[in-house]
Computed example of a mutant assay.
Amino acid sequence: MWPAVMEDVPMSEDVHRMTEVWRRLDALGATITPVPPQRVRQLIDELTSLVGPMPDDYLEVLERYGGDIELDDDDVEFVAAMPSAWAVGGADGIERMHGLTSSYGRSVFEAVAAYEGRIPPGWLPIGDAAGGNQLCLRTARGARGREVDDIGAIGFWDHEAERAVDAGGRARGLTPVATSFRAFVDLLRVAGRDGMGAPEPRD
């Protein structure tokens, strides 16, 4: 876990970026669930063994928050690179992100088990989106264990389109959201606000 950063110590770019990720999630209501460090390490190792390597920024969020990453406001949304069929006014909603542990039976491990065989290989369910859909993270292990070149990308999985395929036989249930987990967190906002700032003016 990242150490506390003192005001008189220059932050590296990576530490600064992760601090900004945590600040945004905290502002949206995310709270830390205490999990012993050894248990956190064990769970992360188990998850890596299960789904393959994952980006550091995502792993650091799992490590910091431990359990369910709940967002207090019911109106947290994001505008994806390609809004889903569920988008309202161009924005999709998010309810919570799965943690290493869960009070609701919705840990990342339980999500993997629940959607096995439904979400395409190489995509890890990381959060509940509006409409019973999932936000997914691209891992390093694609179909049949093949390496992929878009590790860390975030996609929106539409459960109603999970069985549809395109002309090339590829799953059509996933639409692009962001190129990385950090970029995805940057998109999160409370509906009616421009980013994390003041409410947007109305016509």
Score class of each variant (00 low, 15 high):
Met1Asn: 05
Pro3Phe: 12
Asp8Leu: 07
Pro10Phe: 05
Met11Arg: 15
Asp14Glu: 15
Val15Glu: 14
Met18Thr: 09
Glu20Asn: 13
Val21Leu: 10
Val21Cys: 09
Trp22Arg: 07
Arg23Met: 12
Arg23Glu: 13
Arg24Thr: 07
Arg24Glu: 09
Arg24Lys: 12
Asp26Cys: 05
Asp26Gln: 03
Asp26Tyr: 10
Ala27Val: 03
Ala27His: 02
Leu28Pro: 01
Gly29Trp: 03
Ala30Tyr: 06
Ala30Thr: 04
Ile32Val: 15
Pro36Trp: 11
Pro37Tyr: 04
Gln38Val: 11
Gln38Glu: 15
Val40Cys: 13
Val40Ser: 10
Leu43Gln: 09
Ile44Phe: 02
Glu46Thr: 11
Glu46Ser: 11
Leu47Lys: 04
Ser49Leu: 13
Leu50Asp: 06
Gly52Tyr: 04
Gly52Val: 07
Gly52Arg: 04
Pro53Cys: 12
Asp57Arg: 10
Asp57Ser: 15
Tyr58Met: 07
Tyr58Val: 08
Arg64Ser: 08
Tyr65Phe: 14
Gly67Ser: 05
Gly67Asp: 02
Ile69Phe: 01
Glu70Thr: 05
Leu71Met: 03
Leu71Asp: 08
Asp74Ile: 03
Asp75Cys: 00
Val76Ile: 10
Val76Lys: 00
Ala80Cys: 09
Ala81Met: 14
Ala81Tyr: 07
Met82Tyr: 13
Met82Ile: 13
Ala87Lys: 04
Ala87Gln: 07
Val88Asp: 11
Ala91Thr: 09
Ile94Asn: 00
Glu95Val: 02
Arg96Gly: 05
His98Met: 11
His98Arg: 03
Gly99Pro: 06
Ser102Asn: 03
Ser102Val: 00
Ser103Ala: 14
Ser103Gln: 10
Gly105Asp: 08
Gly105Pro: 03
Arg106Leu: 02
Arg106Gln: 04
Glu110Phe: 06
Val112Leu: 04
Ala113Ser: 00
Ala113Gln: 06
Ala114Gly: 03
Tyr115Thr: 08
Glu116Thr: 10
Glu116Phe: 00
Gly117Arg: 06
Arg118Tyr: 09
Ile119Arg: 03
Ile119Gln: 01
Gly122Trp: 03
Trp123Pro: 03
Pro125Tyr: 01
Pro125Ala: 06
Pro125Cys: 10
Gly127Asp: 11
Ala129Gln: 02
Ala130Arg: 00
Gly131Thr: 01
Gly131Val: 05
Gly131Phe: 06
Gly132Lys: 03
Cys136Asp: 07
Cys136Met: 07
Leu137Thr: 06
Ala140Gly: 15
Ala140Tyr: 09
Ala140Cys: 14
Arg141Lys: 15
Ala143Asp: 14
Arg144Trp: 13
Gly145Phe: 05
Val148Tyr: 00
Val148Asn: 02
Asp150Trp: 02
Ile151Asp: 01
Gly155Val: 05
Gly155Cys: 00
Phe156Asp: 01
Phe156Glu: 04
Asp158Ala: 07
His159Val: 02
Ala161Met: 14
Ala161Asn: 08
Glu162Phe: 14
Arg163Phe: 14
Ala164Thr: 13
Val165Phe: 13
Asp166Asn: 15
Gly168Ser: 12
Gly169Asp: 12
Arg170Cys: 12
Gly173Asn: 01
Gly173Arg: 06
Leu174Asp: 09
Thr175Arg: 09
Ala178Trp: 01
Thr179Met: 09
Ser180Trp: 15
Ala183Ser: 15
Asp186Tyr: 12
Leu188Gly: 02
Ala191Arg: 12
Gly192Val: 13
Gly195Ala: 13
Met196Glu: 07
Gly197Glu: 11
Gly197Gln: 08
Ala198Val: 14
Pro199Leu: 01
Pro199Val: 08
Glu200Ile: 13
Pro201Trp: 11
Asp203Ser: 12
Asp203Phe: 14
